[in-house]
Design a protein around this nucleic acid. Structure first.
Length: 317
DNA sequence: ACTAGCCCCTGGGAGC
DNA sequence: TGCTCCCAGGGGCTAG
């Protein structure tokens, strides 16, 4: 699942490939993922377009898609950046396209054609990877290539609107500091974590506390820092906190270097896997031996999410 | 102002 | 072999 390193990988690659290209057309077979914010409307539009009633679905869907298309076709891509786990594609005329890949979504650059309502890759090779075959949105670019979103679980979200409207969405505004931001000091990390009473694992996953950390990197960082995932956040002493701060940042920087984590669905924009899954110490290693002490890695549930840890190295303190 | 729990999805694994 | 059931998992939303 895309967390900060995976989103950063995609962002950097896109920034290299797509600026200055113009979006010529759009195709989608899963309009539910789209949101359009209008210059005149308030943000609440979003709610009425959730298609809770089936009878209204197709009509609303086509209106929404027309608006989406109308607002994006002809726009030129200016730059690509990242906020938290969101990809921001800045367009001409002050428009902004936001993509949150959620669990299984990933953007791909390539060529597809539509056959019987389904997007089929025009080239073999990497596009044969099954995980790249769930295309639900395509942007046709002016150089003949296409930017597509593959998303097995259909959880991804795409928002289009004026820059200020998109950036003032509550889920963007409430994001905590980015864990890789160069201005994000240990002191600010310490202050934030010390103010939280919840279990540290849960606190790290909360994007309004700090942004970028997801399940894999939370587990891996806590192992490296030797902190039990159920430790109450405000009770972690400074020495441990410092280890945690360094662990998160070191692990994420390293993961970016190896192209992100493809344990599950993640692929880069060329459809290729990253390498970080080879370095997991605890994530998805239940019942295997801890690399440090040989104890069996345990898996527990913390607020509905699985947490992997070494019961011997990571004691509650 | 909290937080626990539901919901969105689908491939894959377990059980029969 | 094939069917059914259940589950993961980010994060918004709602009910308590």
């Amino acid at each position: 699942m895309p967390e900060l390193p995976e989103v950063q990988t995609i962002t950097s690659q896109l920034q290299k490939e797509i600026p200055n290209l113009t979006i010529r057309d759009v195709w989608s077979d899963w309009i539910k993922m789209l949101q359009v914010l209008n210059h005149n409307d308030h943000i609440k539009i979003k709610k009425s377009q959730k298609f809770t009633k089936k009878s209204n679905q197709s009509k609303k869907a086509s209106i929404l898609f027309e608006r989406f298309k109308n607002d994006i076709v002809g726009k030129k891509i200016k730059k690509v950046s990242r906020i938290g786990k969101n990809i921001l594609i800045y367009l001409s005329s002050g428009h902004l396209l936001l993509v949150h890949q959620k669990m299984s979504g990933h953007l791909l650059l390539g060529k597809w054609k539509i056959k019987n309502g389904v997007a089929v890759p025009e080239e073999d090779g990497i596009m044969k990877d099954k995980m790249n075959g769930y295309i639900h949105l395509i942007f046709y670019l002016s150089d003949g290539r296409m930017l597509a979103l593959s998303d097995l679980r259909k959880f991804a979200k795409v928002v289009l609107g004026p820059e200020d409207k998109v950036l003032s969405l509550s889920e963007i505004k409430k994001l905590g500091p980015d864990v890789l931001d160069k201005n994000f000091s240990f002191e600010s990390f310490r202050k934030i974590i010390k103010s939280k009473k919840g279990k540290i694992k849960q606190v790290l996953l909360d994007q309004s506390v700090v942004s970028g950390v997801g399940n894999i990197y939370a587990d891996e960082s806590l192992w490296k820092a030797k902190i039990h995932p159920e430790t109450q956040a405000n009770k972690i002493d400074d020495a441990r906190l410092k280890r945690l701060y360094n662990a998160i940042r070191d692990i994420m920087k390293f993961s970016i270097k190896v192209g992100g984590d493809s344990m599950s669905d993640f692929r880069n924009i060329y459809g290729k896997k990253g390498g970080y899954q080879k370095y997991h110490k605890v994530y998805q290693r239940e019942k295997e031996a801890c690399f440090l002490c040989k104890a069996q890695i345990k898996r527990i549930k913390i607020s509905g999410r699985s947490a992997h840890f070494c019961p011997s190295c990571q004691k509650k303190a």
